[in-house]
Amino acid sequence: MEDYIVLCIDDEREILDAVLQDIDSLSSHFILEAAESVAEARELVEEYSLAGKKLALVLCDHLMPEEKGVDYLVELNQNDETRNTRKVLLTGQAGLEQTVDAVNRGGLDYYIAKPWDSESLMQVVIDQLTTYILRNEENLMDYISVLDQERLLNAIHESG
C-alpha cells in the first residue's frame, strides 16, 4: 500500500491543514501530500513518479499566485502519467470560464465550493478514489476498508 498519492494544492496553509485533517483517515492507504504552489506540486509529483508512486487524486485551488489551478489540471490531463488522475477543484474563486476550461481540457471530475463541509468533502474524495482504484489497480481487496465498499465488492464479484 501507499502506492498512490492524494495531493492538495492551495496557497493558503490554513486551508491545507484543514483539508489534510478532513481526509486523514485515508493516510493508512494513501500518501497524503500538500503543496503550497503549483510549482511545488509539479516537483513533488515528479519525485514520487521516480519512486513509482502514482498521483491518484488532486484537490486543487484555482486562484493562486503565479500558476493557476485550472492550468495545472489541464497540464496533468495532457500528461500520460497523470491523465487518469482524478481531478477535483476545491475553490471559491474559479469563474465560469475557468471552470468550463477545467471540464473541457482539464478533465475535471468534481468541483467543491469553499467553504466545504468535511463529510461531503470526504464523500467526494472516497468516490473519486474508488473510481481511480477500480480503473487502475488490480488488487481491490486492500481498499475495501477505506473506500466505497459496495462498488469495490461488486467489481470483485463481477471479475469472478
Binding site: 493558503e12 490554513e14 491543514d17 484543514a18 485533517q21 486562484l63 474563486q93 469553499k114 467553504p115 466545504w116
Partner: peptide
C-alpha cells in the same frame, strides 16, 4: 472581498 473572506472562513469552520 467575498472570495477573500472565503478562505479564512473555510479554515475557521473546519478548524
Amino acid at each position: 472581498v467575498a472570495h477573500e473572506l472565503n478562505n479564512p472562513v473555510s479554515a475557521i469552520l473546519r478548524g
